[in-house]
């Protein structure tokens, strides 16, 4: 084998480099996030419910927001009639965040855990949390 030593050394470095995240994180666990619902508006609600069921929202909120965005912006709609027949204004900034005024404990807790970085807040103004 030509340059056998060099090839093996190269392979060892390559594998070591690419497997580094696995070695580095072995044995460590990150806490499963618990998004907080402790906000003034939610606390005042008699029945604590979102526009759809908690389970459905957990799984589908991103698709819902995506379809709201197109519906409001492109089709000129404003109101979402939920499965339960209730009506809500479709607005992330003015409605979702009205209840969920704790973006850091609510949105960010899961998003950081799952390492997803939605770019909502480069344009939409996040609620001022320390004011509350």
């Amino acid at each position: 084998m030509y340059n056998g030593g060099k090839i093996i050394l190269g392979l060892v470095i390559f594998v070591g480099l690419f497997a580094f995240p696995i070695f580095y994180n072995t044995g460590k666990t990150a806490d499963v996030p618990k998004p907080s619902l402790d906000t003034p508006v939610i606390n005042q609600m008699e029945k604590k419910e979102c526009v759809e069921s908690k389970e459905w929202m957990k799984a589908n909120h991103m698709q819902l927001l995506d379809s709201w965005r197109d519906s409001v912006l492109r089709d000129g709609n404003l109101v979402y009639e939920s499965t339960g027949g209730k009506k809500y204004i479709m607005s992330l900034q003015n409605n979702c965040m009205h209840c969920h005024s704790n973006k850091k404990q609510f949105c960010d807790s899961c998003h950081s855990y799952a390492n997803v970085k939605p770019y909502c807040w480069t344009c939409h103004i996040a609620p001022k949390e320390n004011e509350i």
């Binding site: 589908n60 379809s67 089709d75 709609n77 979402y80 009639e81 499965t83 479709m90």
Partner: peptide, 20 residues
């Protein structure tokens, strides 16, 4: 698929604002 999810989500609908 997104549209499908919304469709399967029973009677959910989008409407213009009442005063639009």
């Amino acid at each position: 698929a997104v549209e499908e999810i919304l469709k399967t989500n029973a009677e959910a609908a989008v409407l213009p604002g009442p005063n639009a």
